[in-house]
Deep mutational scan, measured.
Amino acid sequence: DVEPGKFYKGVVTRIEKYGAFINLNEQVRGLLRPRDMISLRAENLNVGDEIIVQAIDVRPEKREIDFKYIP
């Protein structure tokens, strides 16, 4: 289970104008929005990159997770 405030290692699987999709594993995926990329620009991300993200909002009923990148 993903808990708000905890840090996780994930892999960038898709990049859109509104953010990057980060997979923690095959069943868990969330969104890293540009406003939550402190000191990281979306254009510096590539599909396949491994990054550490913090879960900031977890909505299990919608199967949605928002992440924040903190260097």
Rank of each mutant, 00 (worst) to 15 (best):
E61V: 07
P60V: 10
K17R: 12
I38P: 08
F67Q: 05
K9V: 11
D1K: 14
N46D: 07
V12I: 14
R35S: 11
L32T: 02
A20F: 13
E50L: 14
I38H: 14
K9Q: 06
I70T: 09
L24Y: 01
K62R: 12
V47Q: 01
G5W: 06
V53C: 07
N46H: 14
G5H: 04
N44L: 13
Q54P: 01
F21L: 10
N23T: 13
I22H: 00
L40H: 06
I15G: 00
K17D: 09
R29T: 13
F67C: 08
Q27D: 13
N46L: 10
L32D: 03
R14L: 07
K6Y: 07
D66F: 14
E50V: 15
L40I: 11
E26G: 12
D1E: 13
L45E: 00
R59F: 04
V28L: 14
L45M: 06
P34N: 15
I70M: 09
K68M: 10
L24Q: 00
I22E: 00
E3L: 13
N23A: 14
E64V: 07
P4M: 12
R33T: 05
I22P: 00
F21M: 07
A20V: 15
V2S: 03
N25K: 06
A20M: 10
R29W: 15
F7T: 05
G19K: 06
I15D: 00
Y18K: 06
N23W: 11
R63T: 07
I52E: 04
Y18M: 07
N46E: 12
S39M: 13
E50M: 14
F67V: 04
A42N: 10
I65Q: 04
R33D: 04
L32Q: 02
D36L: 07
A20L: 12
F7K: 04
P4F: 08
I15P: 00
T13A: 07
T13P: 00
N23Y: 12
N25P: 03
E3Y: 11
P71W: 09
I52H: 04
I65L: 05
R33P: 04
A42V: 15
V53N: 00
V53E: 00
R59Q: 03
G48S: 01
P4D: 04
L40K: 05
D49M: 14
P34D: 11
R14M: 06
Y69P: 03
I22Y: 01
V2N: 03
F21C: 08
E43W: 13
R63W: 09
V47A: 03
Y18Q: 06
P60Y: 10
I38Y: 09
K9I: 13
A42T: 13
M37A: 06
T13S: 11
G30Q: 03
R29V: 14
R63I: 07
R41M: 12
V2Q: 02
P4A: 12
I15K: 06
I38G: 15
E43F: 13
K62C: 11
N25D: 08
G30F: 08
R59W: 05
I22W: 02
L45G: 01
V11K: 09
V53S: 00
P71S: 13
R35N: 10
D57P: 02
N46M: 13
P71N: 08
G5I: 02
I52P: 01
Y8M: 01
Q27H: 15
K6S: 06
V2T: 03
R29D: 06
V58S: 06
R29H: 10
I15Q: 01
L40V: 08
G5P: 04
E64A: 05
E64T: 08
L24K: 00
F7L: 08
E50H: 13
A55P: 02
E64F: 13
K6V: 07
G48M: 02
D57V: 12
K62E: 08
A55S: 02
T13W: 06
L24S: 01
M37Y: 06
L40A: 06
Q54E: 04
D66L: 15
Q54L: 15
V58R: 04
I70G: 05
T13C: 08
I51W: 00
M37C: 09
N44D: 15
I56C: 08
F67N: 03
D57N: 15
K9Y: 09
R33F: 05
K62G: 06
T13I: 08
D49K: 05
I38W: 07
E61R: 07
K62H: 08
I56L: 12
D57E: 14
V11N: 02
A42F: 15
R29C: 14
E64I: 11
E61M: 08
I38D: 10
D36E: 06
R35H: 11
R29G: 14
I22S: 00
V58N: 04
R63D: 11
I22V: 12
K9F: 09
E61F: 07
V2G: 02
R35F: 08
G48N: 03
V28W: 15
V11F: 08
D36P: 04
N44K: 11
D66V: 13
D66G: 07
Q54C: 12
R63S: 11
N23D: 10
G10W: 15
Q54A: 04
V2E: 02
D66S: 13
V12T: 00
Y8V: 01
L31K: 05
N44W: 14
G5L: 07
K9E: 04
G10I: 04
N23R: 12
V12R: 00
F7H: 05
V11M: 07
R63N: 15
I38S: 11
L32P: 02
Y8P: 00
A55E: 01
E16F: 13
K62N: 09
Y69K: 02
G19E: 05
E64C: 12
D57I: 10
A55N: 01
N46R: 15
K6T: 06
R41I: 11
I22A: 01
E61G: 12
V12W: 01
N23E: 12
E64K: 06
Q54H: 03
I51N: 00
A42Q: 12
K6C: 13
R33L: 09
Q54I: 11
E50C: 15
I65C: 10
R33Q: 05
N25S: 13
L24I: 14
N46T: 14
I65G: 03
S39W: 11
R14T: 04
G5R: 03
G30P: 03
V58W: 08
V47Y: 03
R63F: 13
Y18D: 05
Y8R: 00
E61C: 09
L40F: 09
L24G: 00
M37F: 07
V2A: 03
V28Q: 08
F21G: 01
F21I: 14
L45K: 04
F21H: 05
G10P: 00
K6P: 02
P4L: 14
V58Y: 09
R14G: 07
L24H: 01
M37V: 07
A20C: 09
A20P: 02
D1Y: 14
V58I: 09
A55L: 06
V58P: 03
E61P: 06
F7S: 07
N25A: 08
R29Q: 15
V12S: 00
K17T: 12
L31P: 03
K17I: 11
L24P: 00
P71M: 12
R59V: 03
S39C: 15
F67I: 04
K68Y: 07
L32S: 02
M37Q: 06
E43A: 12
D1I: 14
R14D: 02
K6D: 02
Q54G: 01
I52K: 03
F7G: 01
F67H: 02
R29E: 09
I56R: 05
F67L: 09
L31Y: 05
K6A: 08
P71C: 15
L45D: 00
K17Q: 11
V53F: 03
E3S: 11
Y18E: 08
I22C: 02
K9H: 09
R29N: 08
F67A: 02
P34A: 14
P71T: 10
V58G: 05
G19A: 05
G19M: 08
Q54F: 12
E43I: 13
P4G: 05
A20T: 08
L24A: 01
G30L: 07
N46Q: 15
V58F: 06
E43K: 11
F21S: 02
D66Y: 14
K6F: 07
F21A: 02
K68F: 08
R41V: 10
E61Q: 11
G19L: 08
F7W: 10
P71K: 11
Y18A: 06
I65P: 04
V28R: 02
K9P: 03
V58E: 02
S39D: 14
N46G: 09
L31F: 10
K9A: 07
D36H: 12
G19F: 08
F21P: 00
M37L: 07
G48I: 01
P71H: 09
N44R: 12
L40Y: 06
L45V: 10
G30A: 05
E3P: 08
P4C: 12
E61D: 14
D49Q: 10
V58T: 05
I65H: 05
I38T: 10
I51A: 00
Q27T: 15
K17M: 09
P4V: 15
R29K: 10
P4Q: 11
V12L: 05
P34C: 15
V58Q: 02
L32K: 02
G5A: 02
D1F: 15
E26F: 12
R41Y: 10
K68C: 11
D57R: 15
I56E: 02
R35V: 10
E26A: 14
E26T: 12
R63A: 12
V53H: 01
Y69N: 02
K62P: 05
L24M: 03
K68E: 05
D66K: 12
R33C: 10
T13E: 05
K9W: 13
P34Q: 14
G48C: 08
K68W: 06
N25R: 05
E16I: 07
D36A: 05
A20K: 01
E50K: 12
K9L: 11
E3G: 03
G30R: 02
I70V: 14
I38R: 10
R35W: 09
E61T: 08
P60A: 10
Y18C: 08
D36S: 05
N44C: 15
Y8L: 01
N23H: 12
F67K: 02
K9D: 01
I52W: 15
A42M: 15
F21Y: 14
R59Y: 05
V58A: 04
V28D: 07
I56N: 03
E16W: 13
E43C: 13
V47W: 03
